[in-house]
Every structure is written in C-alpha cells, then in structure tokens.
Amino acid sequence: MVLTVLPGQAKSVPTDYQSLVDNRFYMEKITEPLPLSGSVDLYLVRFLEHQTESATKTHLRSAVLAIENYMDFPLPVKEIIMLFSTNIDAGGINYGSHFTLDISEDGSLPQLIKGGIVHEITHFYLVMDTPWFAEGTANFLATQVGFELYNQEVAPRSNRSSCPNDVINITEIAAAYPGYYPRTNCPPVLLPQLRRENH
C-alpha cells in the first residue's frame, strides 16, 4: 500500500515521503460492504495519531454507500487509500491508485461535508477526459451526497477555485478573460443548472 502512496508525495512533501519510507505513519482500515460492488477496503493514512474511530472514517463509510447508491453502478475500485498531508495542490488530488487531501479536511462536520472526500472518490468514475465534466460531476455529487447524508446544502467547493470571481455564464467569463475561452471552466455551474433549469 505504501508504495502506491509514495509517488504522489515524494516531490511535494519530502518529510512525509520520508515518514512513509521509515514506516512512521498511522493507518485506519475498514472493509465496508456495498450493495452493488460487494465491498471496498478503506484506508486512512496520517502522519499524526488520530482517534481510531474518527469522524472522517464515519463520513467516508457513509459517503461510499451514498455515492454507489446515486450512481447505481458498482464503485469501480476495490480499495480507497486516503492520505492526509500538507501542501496538497487544490486541496486534494486523485492519483488513480489513491488520493491525497489537505489535513485541514480531516476534521468534523461541517468541514467533512464541504471537503473533498466525495469529490475525490467520484474521480474514480472516469468517463471523460475534459476537466469540466470530471470536476463538474465530482462537485455535483459532493453536493448531492452532502444533502442526502446531512440534509445540508453544500456550496460546491470549485465555486471557490474554478469560477473566476462572480461570473455566472460563459459570456461573462469570455468578457472577463479576453483571449481565453474556457469552455465551461466553471464546472459546478452547468450540471446543477441542468437539473433544476433555474437559469
């Protein structure tokens, strides 16, 4: 398992890399039964000791169930390895074999709801190479699962990072960034609008 984590962290956080090499980390593992895929092995890896039954683990277990239920398709991976660390670009990255999340997202509600766990898991369902759909679906599902699990509206987190300022449509983005035509570089917008038709 450690070897799959190493490539993602070797460059960005050398100290964490060394901790992995030296076998100095803490890991929670649980096998979660799922109705469609049978089960998934969940691993939470940290460099600081944490409660065994962490809130993050509880959220993760609920989230994989809710995700598979909404997708109505088996989760396409048999194990999910989450590494909490620092200096994570964009707050979280899915490397295909595992994903990293900023340690600030390893907390309690509402941090967990707004955080990237569901977002990064959704990236395992890969059906399109262009970022608007991959990021859009990940944010959409994070919002959907947050509402289903906790009955809370969740502001899609990419509203913060992917939508320039307060622009609300492609015309405004093009006007604000002449010469740069993002073709929906504002991924959270299209899918919720499509479902609700509020435009």
Partner: peptide, 27 residues
Amino acid sequence: MGDEPFQAAWREIFQTGIEDNLKFTDA
C-alpha cells in the same frame, strides 16, 4: 430538466462509459 430525467441521463453516461471503457466528447 428535472430530477428523474437528469439522474437517468447521469446514470446512462457513467454506466455506458465505464462498462464500454468510453471517453465521451462534450457533444
């Protein structure tokens, strides 16, 4: 388009894409 049609489209996109290992275009 409403919840049910949206979810039907969503599920077809992902189920077809993953089962057939497709990468869809925007169109």
